[in-house]
Design a protein around this nucleic acid. Structure first.
Lengths: 146, 146
DNA sequence: TTGTTTACTTGACCCCCTCAAGTATCCGGG
DNA sequence: CCCGGATACTTGAGGGGGTCAAGTAAACAA
């Protein structure tokens, strides 16, 4: 039992820790969104809109039913954070576009995740790079469907 | 620009990566819970019940209103996964206890998070230990309220 | 042209969540 | 002892999030 190197954690411990951090970050995100009168789902949609995106693509990204997106975008549109535009190439498609205000709001939400920012600031450059590299290796396996 | 050590990631990149992994793990958890006819919230409650827990304590752990817990426990109780017991020391309090079946179901849900298990299996013991240590350092800062 | 597939919306239905109000109980000060 | 204030839980109203089934419009292929 060495003291300098942590014991190898069990998979369950790692699982639990990962879940705890994921939950904490989600709460931070939700709180920042709430500051601007948004639910976390609405903020998540706004966060995807770097460019025009068909409703269907949005549903795929969120891994949810298309009918669900209709309602979410309805509410965002009612607040003027987003607008629907007919797709010139396919008249079935409606592209969702963030308005200037929408882009502004989501930018502020990201900035206001103070808890997460603060926690990440406790890591120095080397630790950040190490963490990033480890998580980047985890990511592809996590996003597979199987 | 060295190739052997990854560049220092920006905080936004790290943020995004952390969010992606958190989301993926949450989806894996929700899918495993759904296999057993549970919503992810129901499974999360079940996961807290290592011993008897007052409704109020559960609400605090979930960071939600107490009235919310009433409904969730109602549904779990209707499925026989949980039961309410009056607290002998304080008659206002109802302790929630997982039934044998409830404990069994949540154990299986954890086992069936195959995507997450598979991804974690790609890390060797050293990497696991490093990741665990970095995340453990992040955790206290993430769970603060500020 | 006709039939199939795709994009989106609507409506029904459930769960999650909060807030406000109500009941039962505990507890501390007169 | 009793009374007022806190605490634990439940109920009901109201809204967002989620699914499924059904319907419309448009694209597409035979």
């Amino acid at each position: 039992m060495r003291a300098t190197t942590p014991e190898t954690p069990t998979k369950l411990q790692l699982l639990e820790l990962l879940a705890a951090i994921g939950t904490a970050q989600w709460r931070d995100f939700a709180a920042a969104a709430a500051h601007h009168g948004l639910t976390s789902t609405q903020a998540k949609v706004l966060a995807q809109l770097n460019g025009p995106l068909p409703m269907r693509a949005l549903a795929t990204l969120l891994v949810c039913d298309a009918s669900n997106v209709t309602g979410i975008v309805d509410r965002l549109e009612a607040r003027g954070l987003v607008r629907r535009e007919p797709d010139p190439a396919d008249r079935r498609v409606k592209n969702v576009i963030a308005t200037d205000e929408g882009r502004d709001v989501i930018r502020r939400v990201r900035e206001e995740m103070q808890t997460t920012h603060g926690a990440l600031d406790t890591l120095d450059a080397d630790d950040s790079a190490t963490l990033y590299s480890l998580l980047a290796r985890l990511r592809p396996g996590m996003e597979k469907d199987a």
